[in-house]
């Protein structure tokens, strides 16, 4: 079953004061997300990620194109009963306490009044804020605001959750907790659509990703389809080596360097690896680790978005 279907979605913004010109923030986006998928939406700043989410949430109006969520038009207000949304850098009513804010959010979903207090308590526990229940949001740190933002996005037990940069502003522990939360949502069969800059999180969480650049979709698919997984090269870490072995490995390897008191040898192929391991064994040194020369998603991302003189930002029409 398809959870999100985006067809040719385009958004132009007028810029300038006197002579307005149109800038295309999103250019004919086509995307399909299956129900139950955790879908990563990637791209550098200004690529159009937030614009896409704001379009789907009806905060801005598309110039052209259409989208369906759970089989209904995204403009249909009733479909939003089953959606949750965390805006980027969320800012909430600072005069409300965490409890009051979640109560307010629940009432906007028309949830039965008697079910609200238990839901609020449970969600404050889930996002790790039970002690901040009666604290005004003005006293919240950025990370706490992010957590309460996630809590309000889940108050209606949504089928599809849209998270705009959910890890932003969180410390490593907070990031890990949110990662766990997203995994839990996946286990519950929810569809999670999230944009992020933090690539290791995307690698760890997503079934599929879409990469956006200057308003255009560059690619969409599983990570192993998009990123070359093997480059053929290998990396060997050697301990307790001597100068003779070092010289021998230098002749076999492509590159050699020190990593602490270990020797890191990059080898071109498996033949070179076998010769290197044999040399290590012969000289009485230790093989500490052998790593496949996998190009990380980050390497791929940097390569993709660093064209000479290029910019990820939206272009004037």
């Amino acid at each position: 079953m398809i959870a999100i279907q985006i067809e040719n979605l385009t958004k132009d913004y007028p810029v300038g004061f006197w002579r307005k010109r149109q800038v295309r923030a999103l250019d004919g986006l086509n995307l399909t997300v299956e129900a139950g998928e955790t879908f990563g939406f990637l791209g550098p700043n200004g690529a159009g990620k937030t614009t896409t989410l704001k379009l789907l949430m009806r905060l801005i109006h598309p110039t052209s194109g259409h989208a369906e969520i759970l089989g209904r038009s995204f403009t249909d207000v009733s479909v939003h009963q089953q959606l949750g949304y965390l805006p980027e850098n969320p800012f909430f009513y600072d005069y409300l306490t965490a409890e009051e804010f979640l109560n307010y959010s629940a009432r906007l979903f028309d949830l039965p009044a008697q079910s609200i207090p238990s839901k609020v308590t449970a969600l404050l526990d889930v996002v790790g804020l039970p002690a901040a229940r009666r604290l005004q949001l003005r006293k919240f740190s950025k990370g706490m605001l992010q957590r309460i933002g996630i809590a309000q996005a889940l108050i209606n037990d949504p089928e599809v959750v849209f998270l705009d940069e959910p890890m932003s502003g969180l410390d490593p522990i907070g990031r890990r907790e949110i990662r766990e939360l997203i995994l839990e949502l996946r286990r519950q069969g929810k569809t999670v659509f999230f944009s992020s800059h933090i690539l290791p999180d995307v690698e760890a969480l997503c079934d599929r990703v879409a990469i956006l650049y200057a308003g255009k979709l560059l690619g969409c698919g599983r990570l192993d389809e998009l990123v070359p997984q093997e480059t053929g090269s290998m990396e060997l870490m050697v301990g307790h080596f001597n100068e003779t072995l070092r010289n021998e490995l230098q002749a076999i390897g492509k590159e050699i360097s020190m990593a602490g008191n270990l020797l890191r040898v990059t080898l071109a192929d498996q033949g070179a690896l076998f010769r290197a391991v044999e040399a290590v064994h012969r000289r009485g040194a230790h093989v500490i680790r052998i790593l496949p020369g996998k190009e990380s998603f980050e390497d791929y991302f940097v390569k993709l978005f660093a064209p000479p003189g290029g910019s990820a930002r939206a272009k004037p029409l």
Partner: peptide, 14 residues
């Protein structure tokens, strides 16, 4: 300005 509206209008609200 403070974008508090984002989390409100994305809910099932006209």
């Amino acid at each position: 300005d403070k974008k508090t509206l984002y989390s409100i209008l994305s809910k099932p609200i006209h």
